[in-house]
Amino acid sequence: MIKAGIAGATGYTGIELVQLLHRHPQAALHWITSVNSAGKPLSEVHAVPWNYPLITLEEAYARAAEVDVVFLCLPHGQSITAARTFAAAGIAVIDLSADFRLQSAEAYRRWYGLEHTAPELLPSFVYGLCEVNREKLRTARLIAVPGCYPTTVNLGLYPLAKAGWLGDRVIIDSKSGVSGAGRTAKQPYMFVEANENMTPYAIGYRHRHIAEMELVLNGAAPGGACHFTFSPHLLPASRGILSTMYVRAPDGVTETQIRDLYAATYAGEPFIHLLPAGQQATLRHTVHTNRCAISITADDPGDPACRDFIIVATEDNLLKGASGQAVQCMNLAFGLDEIAGLI
């Protein structure tokens, strides 16, 4: 039985992890922390039937030896000290923040505007995109869970990138449910502001998640770098992400070849749902699951020489985009069945 702790259990990703680990057949929660609700049982903070006591992060440090793995569901910039402390105690760390996703302190400063205070740890973290880094994750002790938007984009485009068929520019239009902003009381995320509305933000080459797209997709491409034009939107829904990606394939590459490429790349993947021709990926394909659904459409199906394709990928931002993927990483790192607790 894997003994687990959660730092930051009362946010949206934290409470999802509590629920996943509570029913996991080979894991058990030993402690959970909260900054604002320490001293209370979890049932006073969330509408759940479990009275797990909430403790402070400092108490968790003192009780580090009780667990085999700790999940960090802390805000960006606040996971660094916790990761260093638990790693020094020999505990496996699975970080759901962005603090260890990028490969250098310079990239972290560029995209997050913060100084990284533990750059020596960055090379030790494995980027937790299971379908791409599965073998590295099997021996990982430090894991950085990918961001929610990049999970749909990277899984949606990885086969094209790896084959060298991605081209030099991709336009991405993504929409996320309000829970993607976290459990925060900022005006744009209030019901009256978000309901019956849809808002673009940080559009163009601005959003910090572009760094992860470049990391995975440009890293997989056999040559050349793709420029990503990314337009995220706040969707009036509680959860879910839908990313629509516009790509141009090389001359001579057909829709059938692209479908065959995706089928071969994702053969046997338990959480990738490739849709047949004529079907489009929707939020309902994936919300409340750990799946990523992908559809492929030729821009002009009547043109046999059509090079323009529309790839749509969807996920639940709190599961495949965060907590579910974190558990999938844990399963791999501890030699468990990859789907344990997720089906």
Rank of each mutant, 00 (worst) to 15 (best):
G177T: 03
V178L: 05
S179A: 15
G180P: 07
G182T: 10
R183I: 09
R183P: 06
R183T: 11
A185P: 01
A185S: 10
Q187L: 14
Y189Q: 11
M190W: 11
M190I: 09
V192D: 14
E193F: 10
E193R: 07
A194D: 01
E196K: 14
N197A: 14
M198W: 10
M198H: 11
P200A: 13
P200C: 14
P200K: 15
Y201S: 06
Y201R: 07
Y205C: 13
R206A: 15
R206M: 06
R206Q: 12
H207T: 04
R208K: 06
E212G: 00
M213D: 00
L215S: 01
V216S: 04
V216Y: 05
P222S: 09
A225N: 15
H227T: 08
F228T: 07
T229H: 08
T229F: 07
T229M: 10
T229G: 01
S231R: 00
H233W: 03
L234T: 06
P236T: 08
P236A: 11
S238T: 04
S238P: 00
R239W: 13
G240D: 06
G240V: 02
I241N: 00
S243R: 09
T244F: 05
Y246G: 11
R248G: 15
A249S: 15
P250I: 08
V253S: 10
T254K: 13
E255D: 13
T256A: 14
R259M: 08
L261E: 05
A264Y: 12
T265F: 04
Y266E: 02
I272M: 02
I272Q: 09
H273E: 11
L274C: 02
G278R: 05
Q280K: 15
Q280W: 06
T282V: 07
T282C: 10
L283W: 09
R284C: 11
R284Q: 14
V287S: 01
V287D: 14
H288P: 00
H288W: 05
A293D: 05
S295L: 05
I296M: 09
T297P: 06
T297D: 10
A298G: 07
A298L: 10
D299R: 13
D299H: 11
G302T: 08
D303G: 00
D303T: 02
P304L: 04
